[in-house]
Design a protein around this nucleic acid. Structure first.
Lengths: 139, 139
DNA sequence: GTTACAACTGCGAATTAGTCGCATTAAAGA
DNA sequence: TCTTTAATGCGACTAATTCGCAGTTGTAAC
């Protein structure tokens, strides 16, 4: 009998003390196969396509649970909708090409370190951060 | 008779082809004297204090108009409220206290420079950027 | 000044994203 | 298998924001 290998999210959801229910299995499958940044409505649509009957309230609750446990990342863009992406193994920041919309990931340990230094100097400890750099291709 | 000098926003609003109405005058005054990041409800409260009768719908509409014309910056943090600040002379980044919602501005020339370096290495030139660091007070 | 017209306003109703209470179901550990 | 309790679906609810409309008012042209 064929069975999809449990996604890393499925494993981590249990480690986080959450239950791996049928609706969640579907939502995780959707998240795993998404390489974009879907909002709840879109996640719900995709989940419904796999298994009708899943309530949008469940999608909301699941995304909140996942976000609270750090298993996904919430992205609030300027369009008023909350979107999500699976948390990458290693943190990265984004270049966004303002002309093409293309997103390029990058990572700078030096910037990460500087952030730590500055936060510490302000008496803060960092929970998370987000750096989006809007760019244009040089020519 | 005493008259407040027209704020830079008041000048720029006309240059943008928008009308400088009485409610807008008040809202601009509030924005000019704000050194925090008020949300619409707070802006409305402050505007009301100066001139009662201003509708919250007008605050919403004015802020949208200003943002569309680049005269203010919209900040959508993770607490679901949209906040605003006058476009600053000099760029800065944000610490957001995840517990209190408090926003603290900071600026690091070193981080700015690093971003330039990394962007250049990728063949990009920076248009703008946004760095939000979510923190918690150390104790 | 007066006029004219579109932009703007206040109001309350409508829309939208997200949450919640409740009765029911079903993970998962014993 | 039994038990406990988290999770679910549903629909009602809330909070933030938008919108329709009728009345007002900047502003540019006379």
């Amino acid at each position: 009998m064929t069975q999809t290998a449990p996604s890393s999210l499925a494993l981590r959801i249990k480690q986080a003390g959450l239950r791996l229910t049928a609706p969640r299995r579907v939502i995780l499958q959707v998240l795993d196969s998404a390489d974009d940044h879907p909002d709840v409505e879109e996640l719900h649509r995709r989940a419904q396509a796999i298994e009708p009957g899943i309530s949008i309230a469940t999608v909301y609750r699941t995304m909140n649970a996942l976000a609270e446990h750090g298993l996904i990342e919430r992205q609030r863009f300027d369009d008023g909708r909350t979107r999500y992406e699976a948390v990458p193994e290693e943190h990265h920041d984004h270049f966004i090409d303002v002309e093409t919309g293309q997103v390029v990931e990058f990572r700078s340990d030096e910037i990460e370190r500087l952030q730590q230094d500055i936060a510490r100097a302000h008496g803060f400890e960092i929970v998370s951060h987000r750096l989006d750099i809007f760019v244009r291709r040089k020519r």
